[in-house]
Amino acid sequence: MRDTVTAYVALGANLGDAAAALKRAVEALGQLPLTRVSRASSLYKTAPLDTDSASESSAPGDDYLNAVVALQTGLTAPALLDALQALELQAGRERPYRNAPRTLDLDLLLYGSARMESARLTVPHPRMMQRAFVLVPLAEIAPDAVNTEALDAVRHQAIERLGDSGV
C-alpha cells in the first residue's frame, strides 16, 4: 500500500439489526481501495441524542449501537467521504429529516492531523467533541486522540459498553 493516513470513522445504527449492520460496515470499510481496518472499538449502546440543537435533547428512535474504527488509507479525505456515503446508501440509509433513525451512519472524524473545511467536509468532525458515543469508543482505540477534559464534558451522556470484543 502506498503512503497512508490514519483516519477514524464513527459508526452508528438504530434500525433493523444494528449490530449486524455495523459488522458488515467494518468488513466493507476493510474492502475499500487502498484501505485496511487497523483497530475497532467495542460496541456501545446510547440513547438517540440531538447534539445539533442549542441544548442537548433526545432525538426520535430506538437506542443506537455505536463504534469507532481506525483505518489506514491511501484515499484522500474527499474520496473516503464519498466511499462512506456510498456504504450508507448500500445499507439503505435515508435522510428524511435531521437526526432521523438510521440503518447506518458513518462519520469521518479525523484524517491524520489534517484540518479542512469545505461545504462537503469538515475535519476534525465539527460535533465530535459533543458526543460521548464518539469520544468514548475513540478513546478506547486511540487514547492520545481524546483528552480527559473532552471526556469529562460528555460524562453526563449515558453510554454502555457491550462486551469486550470489537465490532
Results as ranks from 00 to 15, higher is better:
Asn66Ile: 05
Ala139Leu: 00
Ser58Gly: 09
Glu88Gly: 10
Arg102Tyr: 11
Ala91Arg: 06
Glu88Tyr: 02
Thr51Lys: 03
Val68Lys: 09
Glu56Ser: 09
Leu34Glu: 14
Leu34Lys: 13
Ser118Ala: 03
Thr76Pro: 09
Leu106Trp: 01
Leu84Ile: 10
Val146Leu: 13
Ala40Leu: 06
Ser38Tyr: 00
Met128Trp: 09
Thr76Tyr: 00
Arg39Lys: 13
Asp107Glu: 12
Leu65Ser: 10
Pro60Gly: 12
Thr73Ile: 04
Ser53Gln: 07
Val37Tyr: 08
Ala86Phe: 07
Ala91Met: 07
Leu71Ile: 06
Ser57Asn: 06
Thr51Asn: 09
Gln157Met: 04
Ser42Arg: 05
Val154Ile: 14
Asp144Ala: 11
Thr51Leu: 10
Thr148Asn: 09
Ser38Thr: 15
Gln157His: 01
Arg93Asp: 05
Ala77Cys: 05
Pro48Ile: 01
Thr122Leu: 07
Ser38Val: 13
Gln85Asp: 11
Met116Tyr: 03
His125Gln: 06
Ile141Leu: 01
Ser113Ala: 12
Asp82His: 06
Val136Glu: 04
Leu138Cys: 03
Gly61Phe: 05
Glu140Lys: 00
Thr122Arg: 15
Ala142Cys: 08
Arg93Gly: 07
Asp105Pro: 02
Tyr111Asp: 08
Thr35Gln: 10
Ala59His: 08
Arg39Ala: 15
Gln157Leu: 01
Ser57Val: 15
Gln130Leu: 13
Val134Lys: 12
Ala67Ile: 10
Leu89Tyr: 01
Thr122Pro: 00
Ala67His: 07
Arg36Lys: 11
Glu149Cys: 10
Lys45Trp: 02
Asp144Ser: 14
Ser58Val: 03
Thr103Arg: 07
Thr76Gln: 14
Met116Ala: 00
Leu104Val: 08
Met116Leu: 15
Ser42Ala: 06
Leu87His: 01
Asp152Cys: 10
Ala100Val: 12
Thr103His: 15
Leu106Pro: 03
Ser113Asn: 14
Pro96Ser: 00
Arg102Glu: 13
Glu56Leu: 14
Gln90Ser: 12
Met129Trp: 01
Arg120Lys: 14
Gln157Glu: 05
Arg93Val: 04
Leu104Phe: 12
Gln157Ala: 00
Gly61Asn: 12
Thr73Phe: 09
Tyr111Glu: 04
Leu89Thr: 10
Leu106Tyr: 12
Met129Lys: 13
Thr122Lys: 14
Asn66Leu: 02
Thr103Met: 10
Ala54Gly: 01
Pro101Ile: 12
Leu108Lys: 08
Leu49Asp: 02
Arg155Thr: 13
Leu43Asn: 14
Asp63Trp: 06
Pro60Glu: 15
Leu108Val: 04
Asp50Gln: 08
Asp62Leu: 05
Phe133Trp: 00
Asp62Ser: 06
Gly61Cys: 13
Val154Gln: 07
Ser118Arg: 06
Glu88Cys: 07
Ala91Lys: 11
Gly74Arg: 13
Leu71Thr: 05
